[in-house]
């Protein structure tokens, strides 16, 4: 090991350090993917409410089957309850990425997150 290190000249160490730093910085820079900023609630495709993802709050929206409850928390949002029969949008849990979307189709309600820089066109599970 020592014999190998002896092959390095002073400038080499500097170049390696700068290169390592550049690589280290590139990971979070390129892989951060942006943060969600707003939650958008739609009924029948029309926006009925929009909230910044800063303060926690609940919002109740009425659809053809009944009331869907949306919960907002700092940096994330979810469908807390929904009258739909299969509960897919509720089981999806917290949405945390820009353009993630939970669709409660039976009740015509959707919850999506928007961010300044979206890393995906859409995300669903």
């Amino acid at each position: 090991m020592k014999a190998w290190l002896a092959l390095l000249r002073p400038g080499d160490g500097f170049v390696v350090l700068v290169a390592a730093l550049a690589v280290g910085v590139s990971f979070p820079l390129l892989w951060a993917g942006g943060r969600p900023e707003r939650a958008v609630v739609r009924v029948d495709g029309k926006v009925v409410a929009e909230f910044p993802l800063t303060a926690p709050r609940r919002y109740t929206v009425a659809g053809p089957l009944g009331e869907t409850v949306i919960e907002i928390a700092p940096g994330r949002a979810r469908v807390l309850s929904d009258p739909g029969p299969r509960q897919y949008c509720v089981q999806q849990g917290w949405l945390t990425r820009p353009n993630a979307i939970a669709i409660c189709a039976p009740n015509h309600v959707s919850l999506s997150l928007s961010g300044r820089e979206a890393s995906h066109d859409s995300l669903n599970y």
């Binding site: 092959l7 390095l8 000249r9 170049v15 390696v16």
Partner: peptide
């Protein structure tokens, strides 16, 4: 300058 920069610099 060769005194300061060796093959490792060139390689990287």
């Amino acid at each position: 300058p060769r005194r300061w920069f060796g093959a490792v610099t060139a390689s990287v």
